[in-house]
Structure formats: structure tokens, C-alpha cells
Amino acid sequence: MNESLGHIFLDSLLINNFVLSVFLGICPFIGVSGKLATAWRMGVSVIFVITVSSILAYGTNLLLVNFHAEYLRIITYIVIIASTVQMVEMFIKKTSPALFRALGIYLPLITTNCAVLGVALFQTAREYNFAQSVVFAIGSSAGFALALVIMAVIRERLELSDIPHTAKGTALVLMLAGILSLAFMGFAGMGQGG
């Protein structure tokens, strides 16, 4: 695997956007996209968690391969992610109590955000080296944050519009996500040259 770093970044940010075309992290995407203020904060903490856990997962995978214990991969990755989230939680609580209160329940829920485990598993499956893994982690988590912020802006604008009662809530978010996903398909051509 010797894809260029720029290509990996663009690919994970736009072409294969984690939310809109790989379908990872849909639960927080539906749950936290109601307000712009919480959406971007969530996005930033996810970028942080994914980057840190991706670096840790890269190191752990080297160890596992060294000892021929690849069957422990899923278990160790999930432990790494849970402890990273715990660390980030303590760090934010210590440095910025205001942000900690604003994020509330969404912070511990990052553990079950499948995008985090997804990054760790994909970088292993694609045999990325260290630099590629980090760029991939930053690109895909930024892609998650981007999708989250776009959806939050659309939902805030739609708040006052007259929507049929049945379509309110999740069904509306999914329809909007479908349209966004259609739009993001337009980026698919960008990958051809690289």
C-alpha cells in the first residue's frame, strides 16, 4: 500500500465520507445533529478521540502481530477506545468544565460510535503505515464532523418549516442524509487521478 497521504486524506474526508457513504457513526449523526453548537463540539471531540485511538491501535496491532495473537484484535481495540474516551473525558472535565457540561452524555457515548472502531479496523485491514494511519484517522474523523455540522445547519433551518407530522424526526433526517449522500457522490470522480 503506497497511496499518497493527500489522496488518503481527500478520500476519507469527501469521497468515502464515513457517515454518508461508508455508513459509520450514524447513531450520533442522527442523535446529536439537532443543534449546531453541540454538533461542532461533538465533532471536535470525535476528531480527538479517533486520532488518539488510531495511534494507540497502530502500536497495539504491531504488538499483536509480533506475538501472533491477532484473534485478540477486536477485544483490545474496544478496550483502547473505551480508555481513550475515559481519558478525554477526564481531560476535558479538568481543563474546561463548561465544555464538559455542554457535551454531557454524548462524551461517554463516543465509545459506541462505530466510526472510532471503524477507523482502527480499516487502517489494519488496509495495512497503512504509521503516517498513513494518522492521516486516515484525521481525514475520516474530520469527514464525520463535516457531515454532522452540515446536517445540524440544515436541521436548524428546517425547524420552523411546515413538515408533515409523520415525517418529523428520524425519517426526515434520513431523507436529508440521502440527499446529502447523493451530493457527496459527486466527489467520486476526484479519486480517479490519484
Partner: peptide, 18 residues
Amino acid sequence: LPPGGFFTLAAWLLVFTS
């Protein structure tokens, strides 16, 4: 393709809620 997944699930949710 991915958009089809979103649209199909949205349609099923509409059926269920109504």
C-alpha cells in the same frame, strides 16, 4: 448505492410511524 440505503430506511420509517 449509499443514498438508496438512506431513502429506503426513511420510507420504512414513514410506513411504520403512519
